[in-house]
Design a protein around this nucleic acid. Structure first.
Lengths: 142, 142
DNA sequence: CGTTTGTTTTGGATCATTCAAAATAGCGAT
DNA sequence: ATCGCTATTTTGAATGATCCAAAACAAACG
């Protein structure tokens, strides 16, 4: 398997020490993009039972700090993490089940980065969240 | 003063009973758009000391339910409330001090509502948050 | 003015996240 | 291979924002 090596390299190249729990978190994130700390903890626990939730939080914070992961925070939901960091994409969230899909930047280049009035702010980023109902939830009315 | 009357009307027309604390919350929201429950509680307490934080939460939840107020939730910050509900505008948040400004819908009508791929979702809304540094924070480096 | 029903209060619970100190383990140098 | 330095993990507890539920209270209608 090359994925074990790959995750180690990702971590090392980010300037972090390679540990079992960090590898497990990276792997879990690869299999479950848009997962919460808690979901990742459950995934990691399956293979590395001694890992603590706190370690998952630590790893995620380190990854975000090192630019290896990004976090998103849909309103009213726990923070989610993803490995896709190199591009500026947005998210589509199911308002019923919380499922998240990636959405490429909407209108071409960077109109996302141009509010009509900037109130003197030095605008650094624009975050777009689309809310809707996913196919599964549309099919099974509550 | 007409504002006391105005807030009562707003509340009544939303189908809610008019109470001192609700009026106080509406008034505080008028003076402090984009305020958190806690900030509003402090404002309200100044004039109505017996009011509880829970009542402010209750009032805000009722307002949101009745379409009188809207809530926004900038990542990593407590929920904020605003009375401006009739239009679909967005927000510009200072990443340092948290100050929030309104921004009218960016690209004209509703391109905000058109993600490039919708993954089969029935898209209902788009939420845009611009992050930047406000003039005050730019002037006074930490 | 009394009744009904919605609202407020009080006190506590919950969830996600963070803090801090002690124990442990990478990994570069020996 | 081992040492030692320092980063990381663990453990246990704390925090902040929000919500829940039952009892006391009050607005609005007749």
């Amino acid at each position: 398997m090359s994925s074990a090596l790959a995750s180690a390299d990702l971590i090392r190249h980010a300037g972090l020490r390679v540990t079992d729990s960090r590898r497990a978190v990276v792997d879990a994130l690869g299999e479950h993009p848009h997962a919460s700390a808690d979901e990742l903890f459950r995934q990691v626990s399956a293979r590395l039972p001694q890992t603590s939730l706190q370690s998952v939080y630590n790893a995620l914070a380190d990854f975000v700090g090192a630019g290896l992961a990004r976090q998103i925070e849909p309103a009213g939901r726990p923070r989610l993490y993803e490995l896709r960091v190199s591009d500026n994409h947005h998210h589509l969230v199911c308002s019923q089940c919380g499922k998240v899909e990636d959405v490429d930047c909407v209108v071409g280049a960077a109109p996302c980065l141009a509010p009509s009035e900037s109130h003197g702010f030095a605008v650094e980023a624009a975050e777009v969240t689309f809310w809707g109902v996913c196919p599964d939830c549309a099919a099974s009315p509550l």
